[in-house]
């Protein structure tokens, strides 16, 4: 799955974006399948906005974001659901955990949402153990700390098949040790699927072998 950005400019950041140099905004860029892509930017330059554009949950931009040669608005709601169930997965910066569900249920939701489960249920525990959150699996989402939520959100994103994984500051609430563990898991999962990812972050890091790094 190829993702193309063509002269994308966020409407709310228009003035600011046009004054500054950017590798992404107002340019034509193609993200090739299987690439590990890092997007580095200071706060307030629109990282989250970009991820939302790429995941097609915000639409306040000029220019086009195309997926497989087709602009996002040309996809129907049902097409979109299929893509989000099987081709693009996401870790939001604000994590978006259901507070009324337990941690397991939050992950399970994504495992069983599609017509066929990608992983067996045991995989949840296995990944939770690797990331050190197996002890909170039965806790309700409301009682989890940010660090725990972040790791649950990562596991949730990895429960489904995907060709692209979008991650918006996925390690912001983790210490280095835990971030490394998570990065390793993500890299393995991406490799096994031959999938690429787009990761946004504030700083430089060496956790992945990035194919491309862009400055927003």
């Amino acid at each position: 799955m190829q993702i193309q950005l063509s002269a994308v400019v966020p409407v709310p950041l228009r003035e600011k974006v046009l004054q500054q140099q950017s590798d992404i905004w107002n340019r034509d860029i193609t993200f090739l399948p299987g690439q590990f892509i890092k997007i580095k930017a200071p706060s307030g330059t629109g990282k989250t906005t970009l991820v939302h554009y790429l995941y097609h949950i915000r639409h306040d931009y000029t220019g086009t974001v195309s997926v497989d040669g087709k602009p996002w608005p040309a996809y129907s709601r049902d097409d979109l659901a299929v893509i989000r169930q099987s081709r693009i997965s996401v870790v939001f910066q604000d994590l978006r955990i259901f507070e009324q569900l337990t941690a397991t249920e939050n992950i399970e939701l994504k495992r069983v949402m599609g017509p066929q489960a990608f992983y067996p249920p045991e995989k949840i525990r296995e990944m939770a153990e690797r990331l050190g959150v197996s002890h909170v699996l039965q806790q309700s989402g409301a009682t989890l700390s940010y660090g725990e939520r972040q790791r649950i959100a990562i596991i949730r994103a990895l429960m489904q098949p995907f060709e692209w994984l979008m991650m918006d500051e996925p390690f912001s609430h983790l210490d280095d040790a835990n971030a490394d563990k998570a990065a390793q898991l993500i890299a393995e999962e991406c490799h096994s699927r031959k999938a690429g990812f787009i990761l946004t972050d504030l700083d430089h890091d060496q956790r992945f072998d990035y194919h491309q790094t862009y400055y927003l």
Binding site: I57, D78, A81, R84, V90, F98, Q100, L109, Q160
Partner: peptide, 15 residues
């Protein structure tokens, strides 16, 4: 709010 998040995560309106 919940329905919106479900759709964001990929739940089909039909589901």
């Amino acid at each position: 709010k919940e329905i919106r998040l479900l759709i964001t995560l990929g739940t089909a309106p039909r589901q």
